[in-house]
Design a protein around this nucleic acid. Structure first.
Length: 554
RNA sequence: UGCCUGAUAGUAUAAUGGUAGUACGACUGUUUUUGGUGCAGUUUGUCUUGGUUCGAAUCCAGGUCGGGCAACCA
């Protein structure tokens, strides 16, 4: 009652329709064309369409808008199904616009019979010219006054394959003077002698989007057909066909598509990145595709949360990618298993440690009481991160420096006594002493240190490759930037750390879980990872207030 | 030149004629065996000009700015 339910404008429409008794329950659909992989923008649409049905007790169909056989492939169908499922949604029915080709063809015949469609022999250029311009009305050509009988015969001949591609089209007869260019006798059927991934060679004529989408919606009794803003001018046509054909009156509603900083969101551009090898594939972890994000380690729940937070409205937007990253961290912080991995090793010898070594225990996740612990071997010689030592520390540097003390996570407090340099002046080794009574969990030393470091015992360290990703583009608004979007590709978007050192527990961890490498960020095993060669992707870094501090000083 | 759309903190999004709120970001402080997390707090906004009204982000009119529309693509 009292909770503030902020409805988006589409939810308001749905609630209004339901309250008015317009529909018993709602039916939505997610209608991708299988000509590429799904991206985060599709996720927004998926969450909206499936979310609506879940919230109001309806159903959602997955419908492939496969009306253009030359761009569509089964590979894409499979990837789309996989991505929608991975995101956590189940469709009521798996459908294809091509299932309806017979019915849609029948609709076209009906239109011809009503003298509302005609076969046009003009070339595509002629048709474009005859359409006029937004400020000048179009002009009818001779074909527009063909008789119903003639049109029926010609359309049938088109279907029979008597004409070559482009020789003839079927056009709706509407209004060549309309302010809406889409109403100026739009083409509704074209000839394409092409193999279709579902219907094979059965057809050589295919309906255009405008003559398939609304009809498919109607056939499926879709109550709320939600699409993006650029289809607003199509709505008039959408309604016109439904009215003339007297079919189920689906209603189209439009929302603003997702735009995100530092990335591109169009299948055409994503395809280009793949084809020109700017990335390794559709599932490259830097891609804005669902499959790329999955491989990068973004949890589905985080993507759903993101889609929830960005809202649904009609205003053009450019969402900061850091909001997505926030959602990813928020999710992973609660679920990721903590491990220690040193990327850039600096050897530390604990000079006063006389034991053989020992097994210590460290919690798997401080956020999860039931997460348990793991064994971490400790010994006289360990690796720490090279940038966790400074010969001449700045004032607020809480890590190792001559005479300075830190805690080794889940182990002991150590003090840096000395360091060794090579001929080039590079620090090669630290000599530290440990405080025996400072052992984690039974610390009686009374010493408090400000810094805690991750570390790995050199004798037990497991080599691993770590891949660090940065934004794929170096401008915020890639689509809005002048010139070719490829000019803005960030050439440093991938950094490989070939020889990182991981604690041994990581060897036995199952693939598919999210990790937090302490103080380094969130990671997941890549599909390239094998038992003999571990490979990890950095999903996202940790919030780093120290880096910010350093930057300020610089 | 036409038509269609939209405009609320830096970014998104609510307030549906009656206290401009929330989240992310930024900044403080605090807690912490991750410079992480958590907690507390601060910060910044109704495109503009008129009108209607006791009262306007909301309604009306004009302007400004943004996006879209003339593929045998979807």
């Amino acid at each position: 009652m009292s909770e503030e339910q902020h409805l988006n404008f589409i939810e308001e429409i749905v609630e209004g329709d339901l309250a008015a008794g317009k529909y018993g329950s709602i039916v939505t659909r997610f209608p991708p064309e299988p000509n590429g992989y799904l991206h985060i923008g599709h996720a927004k649409s998926i969450c909206l369409n499936f979310g609506l049905a879940q919230k109001y007790g309806g159903k959602t169909n997955l419908r492939f808008d496969d009306t253009n056989p030359v761009t569509e492939e089964t590979e894409y169908v499979e990837s789309i199904k996989n991505d929608v499922q991975w995101l956590g949604f189940n469709w009521a029915e798996e459908l294809y616009a091509s299932n309806y080709f017979d019915q849609i063809h029948g609709f076209a015949v009906r239109l011809i019979e009503m003298d509302l469609a005609y076969v046009d022999d003009s070339s595509s250029e002629e048709i474009a010219t005859q359409k006029g311009t937004p400020t000048q009305p179009g002009t009818p050509n001779v074909y527009r006054s063909r008789t119903v009988t003639e049109n029926l015969q010609l359309f049938e001949d088109m279907r029979l394959g008597k004409y070559a591609d482009g020789e003839k089209v079927l056009r709706a007869k509407i209004d060549l003077a309309s302010n809406n260019m889409h109403m100026r006798d739009p083409i509704i059927y074209r000839i394409k002698h092409a193999h279709h991934h579902r219907t094979g060679n059965k057809w050589c004529i295919y309906p255009m989007y405008d003559f398939a989408h609304g009809q498919s919606d109607a056939i499926e009794n879709i109550t709320h057909s939600v699409c993006t803003l650029e289809f607003i001018p199509h709505r008039e046509l959408y309604n016109w066909f439904i009215e003339k054909l007297s079919i189920f009156p689906s209603k189209q509603y439009e929302f603003a598509r997702l735009n995100m900083t530092y990335t591109v969101m169009s299948k055409r551009k994503l395809l280009q990145l793949v084809q020109e090898n700017h990335v390794t594939g559709w599932d490259d972890p830097r891609m804005s595709t669902i499959s790329g994000m999955r491989r990068r380690g973004y949890p589905a729940a985080a993507i759903r949360e993101f889609c929830d937070r960005i809202g649904i409205a009609k205003r053009d937007n450019l969402i900061d990618i850091s909001l997505l990253e926030f959602c990813v961290r928020e999710d992973l912080n609660k679920t990721a298993v903590r491990r220690m991995v040193v990327f850039d090793p600096l050897k530390v010898i604990i000079t006063n440690y006389t034991g053989e070594g020992e097994i210590l225990h460290s919690e798997n996740n401080p956020e999860d009481q039931n997460g348990g612990t793991r064994e971490v071997p400790f010994s006289k010689e360990i690796f720490v991160e090279r940038d966790d030592f400074m010969e001449e520390p700045s004032k607020k540097y809480f890590r190792l420096a001559p005479g300075q003390m830190v805690r080794l996570k889940s182990a002991y407090i150590i003090k840096c006594d000395d360091f060794v340099k090579d001929a080039n002046g590079n620090v090669t080794e630290l000599h530290c002493s440990y405080i025996p009574e400072s052992k984690s969990g039974s610390d009686t030393s009374g010493i408090h240190v400000k810094g805690t470091l991750h570390w790995v015992s050199t004798a037990h360290a497991i080599p691993a490759e770590v891949r660090l990703y940065d934004r794929l583009f170096n401008v915020e608004d890639v689509a809005g930037a002048e010139g070719d979007f490829k000019d803005y590709i960030n050439t440093d978007s991938l950094t490989v750390v070939p020889h990182a050192y991981a604690e041994p527990a990581l060897l036995h961890d199952s693939i598919g879980v999210g990790f937090q490498f302490l103080r380094k960020g969130y990671f997941c095993a890549d599909k390239d990872s094998t038992p003999t060669k571990l490979v990890f992707n950095r999903t996202v870094g940790l919030k780093d207030t120290w880096a910010k501090e350093v930057k300020k000083g610089a």
